[in-house]
Write a protein that binds this DNA or RNA. Structure first.
Lengths: 340, 340
DNA sequence: ATGAAAGCGCTAACAT
DNA sequence: ATGTTAGCGCTTTCAT
């Protein structure tokens, strides 16, 4: 059980030099098949694994990628979105035999510390950065530290590679659906300002209204922070303005919205129709089941990993940009069964 | 921006040797205050950070801990429990200036691969292992690979250090509460068998019934997997046996249970009282609000990190064992307001 | 108090 | 095709 195995011992046991063992380990050509077999034999017999730290020191990749989840909103990690994204990323890492490091930055102090520490060689080869604010100081820092990274969510700097979902079309589809069903006082509960995803969803909402010639009303647009509680609060602020429909930028907020409506004695969808965004499992089992815009969260995670590894192998230029489609999932909270 | 800074350059700039810089970096004594100041000055001016990989190669700790979340149940990471635990662990890491690596094992293949790869020096100093099955083959493997670890959730091997919550008392309190309120046909929706946490909660349930001389009925005990959907299914199986109360081993299952009851036209708590376990945020906002056993999930994460670092610094023996208290939170789903 | 030198385990020229 | 050797950047004896 002495785990003191090094490439040296393996070399000795196999009767070859260390370089040969290293060559076998790294699939180099120019190794006689028999020698290779012999070495592999010893490696298997001993259960040897090359030390990843030493490997990394001598220039190889660490085969580890980091995921950065900045602060932005208190306790946001509790929002079901992040676990699912992380799950997708973990999936992607596993597919490619990579290890995942998680940087869950829960305070400004942590964000600063993280930013200050970024440097070329950590225990990782690259980063996936999520939900950065519009002008996150992390991004420029990343560029001049040369750490390869991809973002989840688009970014305006043309050098940034990202995987995003089509928030604009998604929101547009959700709102258009409501208009088609005859709703005219359509409110929106937005995500926190300063994030492009939130902006995109809001723009989709406004565009849809404009195209269908429905007057926009500033009083019908309020902000939340994607949580259930904030959706509840937002709906209470909206009630006095008597909307006949609400488009929420997250399912969690839509659920909070349903709760506020229930308390207020409003029927959904008869009095107020509700459409969410995400398509979490809860959306299908809420009361009533939620019409919502499905976004491929896990898949985005997997693809972000693939993109990052592609960058690691082939260089960061040109920047990769990928926008995944969203899809309207109709259930009963929008009242489409009333007209169809 | 040439991040090629090494201890060498710092030494040159400060006019000292590399060893001296290293001594400053590691807070060694025997460095003249002025020399130290001089070196620190250069370090600050250049923004130098010692390469963690090189550091680790030459024997220092990596200041990184890994969190292992084994398979056990498909998609369990979506259960709100894990994000909260991970958040706690991240918090603990951050407090101690440690980095967190996440091993989310999503298939048997991944579990095996992970187990095979464990060896003394990875990019990490120790592991926190969650929700291992009763006889997880990972545990012995961990012992003979000498990797320090602590478990979240108790384990029978006396060498294992762990942080657990008092599942037994928690369940006992929840069920006793129901008995006191006059319920006699109290069902339980258990967690998956094979986990000690699930066993403990079940035993707490049985103990409470026995102590209060309420007959246990096998037909009233069913299993779920902690998810909302499984709670819903479980409740549907229970309905024919007409329970007047249900104790669910997780809030998610309790919520599923509420949904099944609502569909079946049963009133909560009038017809059936419900008690959950966890005290997730949703418990307070469900309809009706859920009486539940609160467990300190995040805190357990923080403490697990502290325990692991203690082990890293002072050795694994004797094994540390810590059991955190749970607490019954009474809301309206149990009907206590009907009698009180 | 400081510097010189060896070594952590591996990879990658450079020989042969 | 294989062995020899020089690092990778740091820590740590061992001198002085």
């Amino acid at each position: 059980m002495a785990d003191k195995l090094t490439i040296r011992q393996i070399a000795a046991l196999a009767g070859v030099s260390r370089s040969t063992v290293s060559r076998v380990l790294n699939d180099h050509p120019h190794v006689r098949p028999e020698t290779r077999a012999q070495v592999l034999q010893v490696i298997a017999a001993t259960g040897f694994h090359p030390d990843p730290v030493a490997r990394s020191l001598s220039g190889r990749d660490a085969e580890t990628i980091g995921v950065v989840i900045p602060l932005t909103i208190r306790s946001l990690f509790e929002h079901p979105f992040f676990p699912r994204l992380v799950q997708g990323i973990a999936q992607g890492c596993s597919n490619q035999d990579y290890t995942l490091s998680l940087y869950l930055l829960q305070s400004l102090k942590e964000e600063n510390r993280f930013r200050a520490r970024i440097s070329r060689r950590q225990f990782l080869d690259g980063l996936i950065v999520t939900s950065a604010r519009d002008a996150d100081p992390l991004i420029p820092r990343l560029f001049d530290s040369q750490v390869p990274f991809v973002m989840h969510g688009r970014h305006e700097d043309p050098r940034v590679s990202f995987v995003d979902v089509d928030n604009l079309s998604g929101a547009h589809a959700g709102v258009t659906h409501l208009v088609r069903l005859g709703r005219r006082r359509i409110a929106m509960i937005c995500g926190p300002s300063g994030s492009l995803a939130a902006e995109d969803r809001k723009r989709g909402y406004l565009d849809a209204l404009r195209e269908r010639r429905v007057a926009a009303d500033e009083a019908l647009v309020v902000c939340g922070d994607y949580t259930e509680a904030s959706g509840y609060e937002a709906m209470r602020r909206l009630l006095p303005h008597v909307p006949d429909a609400v488009f929420a930028a997250s399912d969690a907020m839509a659920l909070g919205c349903l709760r506020a409506l229930r308390e207020a004695g409003q029927r959904v969808p008869e009095d107020v129709a509700v459409v969410g965004f995400d398509d979490l499992p809860q959306a299908a089992t809420s009361d009533p089941p939620l019409t919502t815009v499905r976004q491929p969260i896990q898949r985005a995670g997997v693809l972000a990993v693939d993109m990052l590894i592609d960058i690691l192998e082939n260089g960061a230029e040109p920047a990769r940009r990928m926008v995944l489609p969203t899809k309207l999932v109709v259930r009963s909270s929008c009242g489409s069964h009333l007209v169809s």
